[in-house]
């Protein structure tokens, strides 16, 4: 693994806030994303036909990448420039660390992180063994606690987000493909209900912003479709990784509402529903947003 320097990302972030000052956007950018990574280049589908259940809602579904300005989009084209890769590196260190009570590491059971290829694209899913709806954080915590004998990691802790970053990267370029039927159906319905509920004192639903007003500006923010195929993402504004669960908390809080907790049953169901709205878009592995 090459060493990615943090400084480069931070310099880029500074350049971005300057660039932002003059930016005015309307529709998604006409652009294509090919990511140069360690093992060559990967083509990313950032625009495609909507899943069947959204056929009457959208002509196309778009990655949030297309709604960011040129400078931010460029940061995602090459892993050398992508500040999120620092967190992937930290994830690798953790993957190999003998941290379990019996001295086990993730690697001692799973070998290399590439054994996780494909997982990001199908989560959340109903686990065959437990019958429960599981997000990636749940699978990680099942290993951390049951198999390694450690204290559970916080849903949005640094340990957790480093590991989410590493594992998500293994699915880069694969199409999001979460199941919404069978045992997933009732969780999906629950997530859909949350998506269309107007929460808080401002009475706003996810759909009000990300379905009804996609492409428009809410003050200086260019509204995307609120897709999560890019998650976890490096957010320049926070200078750190943001998971989908964390983003949901932020968006609901902005409606002057009492949010659900990251990792709650409600937000797990919402993650399934939102992920399914992006079925067909590529997993970006680790993306960059502002």
């Amino acid at each position: 693994m090459p060493r990615y320097t943090k400084t480069k990302g931070i310099l880029a972030a500074t350049a971005l806030s300057l660039a932002l000052a003059g930016a005015v956007h309307a529709d998604p950018a006409e652009d294509e994303l090919v990511i140069e990574g360690e093992d060559g280049s990967v083509e990313i589908v950032t625009k495609t036909a909507p899943p069947a259940f959204l056929a009457d809602t959208f002509d196309a579904i778009y990655s949030g990448w297309l709604f960011r300005d040129d400078t931010t989009r460029d940061l995602e084209r090459d892993d050398f420039d992508n500040p999120a890769m620092v967190f992937v590196d930290r994830g690798i260190d953790k993957w190999n660390a003998a941290m379990g009570t019996g001295g086990e590491s993730c690697a001692s059971c799973h070998e290399g992180p590439e054994s996780m290829a494909g997982l990001r694209a199908v989560l959340p899913r109903v686990d065959e063994n437990t019958g429960k709806l599981m997000i990636m954080e749940d699978y990680i915590n099942a290993c951390v606690t049951d198999r390694m004998g450690l204290e559970k990691w916080g849903t949005t802790s640094a340990d957790m987000k480093d590991m989410l970053s590493l594992i998500s990267l293994q699915s880069r370029g694969l199409a999001m493909n979460v199941k919404i039927d069978g045992p997933a159906a009732h969780y999906w319905e629950q997530g859909k209900e949350i998506y269309y509920t107007r929460f808080g004192q401002l009475e706003m639903s996810c759909a009000n912003c990300h379905e009804d007003n996609t492409g428009l500006m809410i003050r200086s923010d260019h509204l995307s479709q609120g897709q999560i195929n890019g998650f976890p993402t490096y957010r320049l504004k926070d200078a750190g990784m943001v998971s989908a669960q964390q983003r949901f908390v932020g968006c609901v809080r902005d409606t002057r509402a009492e949010t659900f907790k990251a990792g709650s049953d409600e937000f797990k169901a919402l993650e399934l529903y939102v992920a399914s709205r992006g079925n067909g878009l590529s997993v970006e592995g680790v993306s960059v947003r502002h």
Binding site: E203, N208, A257, E258
Partner: peptide, 30 residues
């Protein structure tokens, strides 16, 4: 889509401003 600026009831999970925590009664209008 426009929020109501002088209304104090009928909300779903009203919060305490932008803290993400539950609102304390009585709710003030925006």
């Amino acid at each position: 889509f426009m929020p109501a600026f002088y209304k104090v009831d009928g909300f779903t999970r009203p919060g305490d401003g932008f803290t993400g925590k539950a609102a304390t009664e009585p709710l003030l209008p925006v």
